[in-house]
Simulated scan of single mutants.
Amino acid sequence: MNVVSRRVVGLLSLSLGLLGTVGCGGEETGAEGPGLARQEQALISGAPYVCLETTCAVPGAAYISHFSWPNCGGNEYYYTPYFSGTGNPNPDGIMRPWDGLGLAGTVHHTVTVYSYRDASGTCHNAWSQGNTLANFVRIYRKANNGTLCGEKHCSYPQGRDISRFSGLNCGGKEYHKPGIMGDGLMRTWDGLGIVGQSLGSMTLSSYRNPSGECVNYKWSDTHSGLANVYRP
């Protein structure tokens, strides 16, 4: 096991199918937005999922996931009051993201969500103006075969600037262009994720600014000096 962070994430067997907790790396604040306490993610080669909180739970069933952006983009959440008949977390403690996979955080958040994905895999843009509710928990997924950093070296963002994307509507791969601000700092649109150190060229089609707005370029163009941005 190759540990490349200061904290250790517990490896999880997806075949268990049982509700439980897994010790994970990192801490997150209780609010939506740039709050991943320096994102002390555990980056372990081969780990199936990456938990960004002190403790995560194994989902026990499949139902619905909510998302902080339209088109099931942004952060993924599970609404813990489901099946409780109230606005309070269900005392059965079972987490039910749309496919029953991933890891569920244990920190509760108040979040404005715009879309959800049901157990069939269909995404629904249900709330054009957003729907703000309490008692959501984050759902964490694997990235780059279980590691956040898909390169030999990555670094944490130290500020916010636009992120560039290979696809329209901020789809495809996300990139940062170092040196734009002249100070050598790595930046992403929300100050989160981690940034690779290998630079390359890519045809870009859109960008997201620090306010969260996605803008499509009038025409796609190839840019050099781009660094990959990795997210869970």
Results as ranks from 00 to 15, higher is better:
residue 113 V to T: 15
residue 163 S to V: 04
residue 144 N to R: 05
residue 82 Y to M: 09
residue 32 E to Y: 14
residue 109 H to G: 03
residue 122 T to Y: 05
residue 39 Q to S: 14
residue 100 G to I: 02
residue 139 I to V: 15
residue 167 G to I: 09
residue 117 R to I: 07
residue 160 R to I: 15
residue 52 L to K: 04
residue 61 A to G: 09
residue 147 T to A: 14
residue 147 T to W: 00
residue 104 A to P: 02
residue 40 E to D: 14
residue 144 N to C: 10
residue 160 R to P: 08
residue 157 P to H: 06
residue 32 E to H: 14
residue 73 G to K: 11
residue 105 G to W: 07
residue 66 H to D: 03
residue 126 A to Y: 06
residue 172 G to A: 08
residue 91 P to G: 08
residue 34 P to D: 14
residue 54 T to G: 12
residue 137 V to W: 00
residue 96 R to C: 01
residue 166 S to W: 05
residue 125 N to H: 05
residue 90 N to F: 07
residue 147 T to Y: 00
residue 72 C to H: 06
residue 47 A to S: 14
residue 38 R to Q: 15
residue 168 L to S: 09
residue 106 T to V: 10
residue 70 P to W: 06
residue 43 L to Y: 05
residue 170 C to F: 06
residue 104 A to T: 01
residue 56 C to G: 07
residue 126 A to T: 14
residue 116 Y to Q: 11
residue 110 T to P: 00
residue 74 G to R: 03
residue 104 A to W: 00
residue 40 E to I: 05
residue 52 L to D: 06
residue 62 A to Q: 06
residue 57 A to C: 03
residue 88 N to A: 12
residue 160 R to H: 09
residue 115 S to H: 12
residue 165 F to N: 09
residue 75 N to V: 07
residue 50 V to K: 07
residue 39 Q to R: 15
residue 176 H to T: 01
residue 101 L to V: 01
residue 86 T to A: 06
residue 143 A to K: 01
residue 61 A to V: 02
residue 73 G to I: 09
